[in-house]
């Protein structure tokens, strides 16, 4: 079954303007696991009847991995091409499914000519709950232990610590914090373009160090808000053979399940 997701081009040809652009991101578009997060976000947006669009085939990598990997040329090429596309459609407000796209478009596009109001999907969900548009039943995860892993580019990178937590608390879940959380959150190991290269020599994988910390709480769910953290934590949980006890889920998926 295909979800009802319209592109900017489709909106434009019908003469309408969407309220918000959903920037899906490469992981959300292509990664098997992250595609489910994209669908969960769409489910939430559709549920509240928000008029949103995606760029579809006109979307291209935000340039984050190129920039963190030291390739400023490639980053700025990507950024300027994306800015041209976004400005052509007169985009004002963007919600991203990925903290890396969120950070890059919000912070690094303006000086290149791209000025938009950019929010992360956990912030949008929180706003929708706060203004009453989104009602959470709080059944699916009631009383279940959930720990939130802070994505670096959401938390330390942009100071967004509370939005995902407030959303989780709305589920009547037992939000349980790791020792290293919020500003002290420990990276999953994927940032800085590490996702795309072999780890340097060491005595442990970063994602195992982090997953171990999360699993020590024996949570039903490790929640996060980043497709790369998703990959790293899911691999970690598999490594420790805890897939039966602990699921790794995006905050959007928690909400999407609860409003089902």
């Amino acid at each position: 079954m295909s979800m009802n997701v319209k592109t900017m081009a489709e909106y434009k040809s019908s003469g309408e303007e969407p309220e918000i652009l959903f920037w899906v991101g490469c992981a959300g578009s292509f990664d098997e696991r992250a595609k489910k997060i994209s669908r969960a976000i769409v489910k939430i947006l559709s549920h509240v009847g928000m008029k949103f669009a995606v760029l579809g085939t006109e979307e291209s990598c935000s340039g984050d991995p190129a920039k963190r990997g030291g390739n400023e040329f490639l980053f700025q090429m990507q950024a300027m091409n994306n800015i041209t596309t976004l400005n052509t459609y007169n985009v004002k407000k963007i919600v991203t499914g990925c903290p890396h796209c969120f950070n890059t478009i919000k912070n690094e596009y303006p000086s290149l000519g791209g000025n938009y109001e950019v929010i992360h999907h956990t912030q949008l969900v929180q706003q929708l709950i706060d203004n009453g548009q989104l009602k959470v039943r709080g059944g699916a995860f009631k009383g279940k232990k959930i720990t939130f892993h802070d994505p670096c580019y959401l938390g330390r990178g942009n100071g967004v610590y509370e939005a995902p937590r407030e959303v989780i608390q709305k589920l009547d879940a037992d939000l349980s914090e790791m020792k290293r959380s919020r500003a002290k959150g420990f990276c999953c190991g994927a940032g800085g373009a590490q996702m795309f290269k072999d780890a340097e020599k060491g005595n442990k994988e970063v994602n195992l160090e982090r997953t171990e910390e999360a699993l020590a709480l024996e949570p039903a769910v490790i929640a996060t808000g980043c497709p790369f953290c998703m990959t790293m934590m899911t691999d970690g949980v598999k490594h420790f053979n805890k897939e039966q006890q602990t699921k790794v889920m995006d905050v959007a998926e928690l909400i999407a399940q609860d409003i089902a």
Binding site: M1, S2, M3, V5, T7, V24, C26, G28, S29, F30, K35, S38, R39, V42, V54, G56, T57, E59, S60
Partner: peptide, 12 residues
């Protein structure tokens, strides 16, 4: 991945 496949995620 092919950029042409960017919207395939919307299919369950």
């Amino acid at each position: 991945f092919s950029p042409a496949d960017r919207l395939k995620w919307r299919e369950e």
